[in-house]
Write a protein that binds this DNA or RNA. Sequence first.
DNA 1: ATGATTTACGAAAGCGATTTCGTAAAAAGT
DNA 2: ACTTTTTACGAAATCGCTTTCGTAAATCAT
Lengths: 333, 333
Amino acid sequence: MNIKTIASMAGVSVATVSKIINNYSDVGEETRQRVLRIMEETGYKPSSSAKTLATKKSNLIGVVFAGKLNSDLNHPIFVKVINAFKKQIGLLGYDLLFFSNETFFQSKEDYLARCRHFQVDGCIIIAGDIIEPSVVNLARSDIPCIGIDIEIDGVNSTYLMSDNANIAAKIVEHLYMRGYREIGLLGIERNSGVILIRETAFRESLKTFGLPIRPEWIIRSVDYARDSGYRAMKGLISSGSLPQAMFAVTDHLAFGVMQAMKEHHLRIPQDMALVGCDDIDACKYTVPPLTTVRQDTDKIGRLAALMLFDMINKQINPTAVMVESELIVRESC
Amino acid sequence: MNIKTIASMAGVSVATVSKIINNYSDVGEETRQRVLRIMEETGYKPSSSAKTLATKKSNLIGVVFAGKLNSDLNHPIFVKVINAFKKQIGLLGYDLLFFSNETFFQSKEDYLARCRHFQVDGCIIIAGDIIEPSVVNLARSDIPCIGIDIEIDGVNSTYLMSDNANIAAKIVEHLYMRGYREIGLLGIERNSGVILIRETAFRESLKTFGLPIRPEWIIRSVDYARDSGYRAMKGLISSGSLPQAMFAVTDHLAFGVMQAMKEHHLRIPQDMALVGCDDIDACKYTVPPLTTVRQDTDKIGRLAALMLFDMINKQINPTAVMVESELIVRESC
DNA sequence: ATGATTTACGAAAGCGATTTCGTAAAAAGT
DNA sequence: ACTTTTTACGAAATCGCTTTCGTAAATCAT
C-alpha cells in the first residue's frame, strides 16, 4: 500500500496525492475529498523513510544520554524530564528516538554520525558525569540541540536546567532561619556540572550569612549511590565532630546519611539536621521525611520541547534558561 | 556526503561500496580496504531512511505504552524493564522509537499504522490498564511483538511477565510461616491483567493453606496512587476489624496503608503486618522497611530483547515466558 | 593452449515519497 | 470574442541506498 496505489485508486497522479498529504493549495476540492476518503478507507499512511529521504526531515528527535554514569532511564529526575518532554514534543508532531549506547557503530559515542544516520531534526542531550568530545561535536554541529543539566554551547544549541545556585541558596537560608549555624556538605568527589554549581553556591551562601566553612564538614561521596553516601557519612561520624546540619547534594546521598545516622543511633534532626536535593519519590517515605528541593521536572521537559521546536522550525536560538525550584519542607530539619 | 561521493572518491561504483557496507563476498580485498579507509576518514555513515526504503528494515523497535493509566516512563517497574531492554536490544543492533501518544495521527491510537509508517522491525508493548483494540490489531499483525505484563496473542506475538501467581503464593506462604492466619488484601477496583492474577492466586493460596477469605478484609483502591490506597485503608480501619496481615498488590498502595496506619497510631507489623509487591526503590526507606517481592526487571527486559530478536530474525515464535521473582524480607511482617 | 569456472566489479531498476515546472481548461478581464 | 490570468493537475527528476544480473578478466582444469 503506497502512494501509487492510492493515486491509481483515485484516478489521479502520485503528485496530486502527495500534494493533498502536504496541504498544497493547487488541488481541487472534490479531488481532495475523494483522495482523502480513499486514504481513510485503506488506512494508508505515507512511509516515513521515503518522506525523510525526499525531504531530509524525519520528525524524529534524538535522545542522547551523555556519559555512562548516573545518566539513563533509571535516573529519577531525568526520566521525569524525558516523560514531560515526550508529551510536549509529541503534541508538536515529533517522536523520540533513543540511541542505544551499544550498537554496531564502531565509535560507540559518535552521536553526530548517528544523528545524521537517522536524520533526526533535533536532539535532547541529557547530562552525564562527563561531557564526552562526541557530545561537544554534536552540540557544535548544525543539528539543533538542547541540553538538560549540561551547559553546551554551539551555534545551534542551548541548555536548560534548574537554577541550582538558587537551590543551594534556598537551602542554606532555610537552615539558617531554623537556627542552624554549623552546616556541612555531602558532595561528590568528581565534582562537575550541576553538582559543582550546588557546592559553589553553597559555599557562597555560607559566606553571605557569615557562617563558617569548616573543611572537616565538607565530605565527599565517590559516586551517586546511596551506599557511597553512607560510607562517606560513616567517615564523618567516626571523626567525632558533626555539624548541626548537613546538605546532601542529592536525595540518594541523603538516604545514605540517614542510614549511617541510624546505625549509630543518632537522630535526625535532633543530632543533626539533614536536607537533600531533587525530591525524588522516596523522600516522603523516609523517617523522618526528607526536607529537600523539588526540581520542576515537568516545566523543564515542557520548555525543552518548546525551545527545541523553535530552534528547529523558526531558526531562532533561545538563550539558556534556568527553571525555579521549590523548597519542600518536611521533617528532617 | 553520500554513497556516490564515497564511490567516486574510491574510484569504484556505488554498487561496490554498498556491497562493502553489507559484507558481500564478491569484492576484492584491496578494494575493500581502500573503500573502508575512505569511509573511516570521511566519517561517512549510510542514511538510514534510504536504507530502510530499499530494504524495508529499519533496525528500529517501537515502544508502545498501551492504555493511558499507570503506563509510561514514570512507572517504576516498566522504566527498569525498558532500560534493560534498551541495553540488550542495542547490543543486537537496534535503536528504540518511542511513540508519542499525541501526534498528528488522527486516530491517535492506531499503533499499527504508526509501526508501518516507521517500518519498525518489531515492537515491545507495555501493559496499560486496558487493552485497546488498536493494540490487539498490532499484535495480530505481521509485525513481531512482545508484550510486557500483557497477554496478547497473535500470529507473531508473545509475552513475558513475572510469575504473578507465584508471587502471591510466595507472599501468602511467607505470612503463613510467620504465623499470620487472618490475611487481607488491598486490590484495585478495576481488576485486570497482572493485578487480577495476583488477586486470584492470593485467594487460591489462602484456600490451600486452609485460611479464611473474609470479604471485609478484601478492600480495593480506585487506582494505583498511594493516596487511593490510603483512603481504602482508612475505610478498613474505621470499620473496626483489622486482619493480622495484609497484602497490598503494589508497593505504592502499601505506602498508602502505612500512612493510614500511622495516622491512627497503629503499628506495623505489631498491629497489622504488611507486604507489598514490586520492590520499588522506596521500599527500603520506609519505616518499617517494606517486605515485598522483587520483580526481576533486568531479566524481563533482557529476555524480551532476546526473544524479540529471534522473532524478527529467525522467524521463530517463542512461547510466553514467566520470570521468577524474589521475596525480599524486610521488617513489615 | 583451450575451454570451464571463479572472481571482481558495474549498470540499472527499484524502494516511496517530494517538488519543480509545464500545460490544458476554466474563469476573468476587456 | 479574444486575450490574460487563475486553477487543477501530471510528467519526470530526485533523494541515497540495495540488489539482480551481466560481463570482462583472472584462475583453474585437462
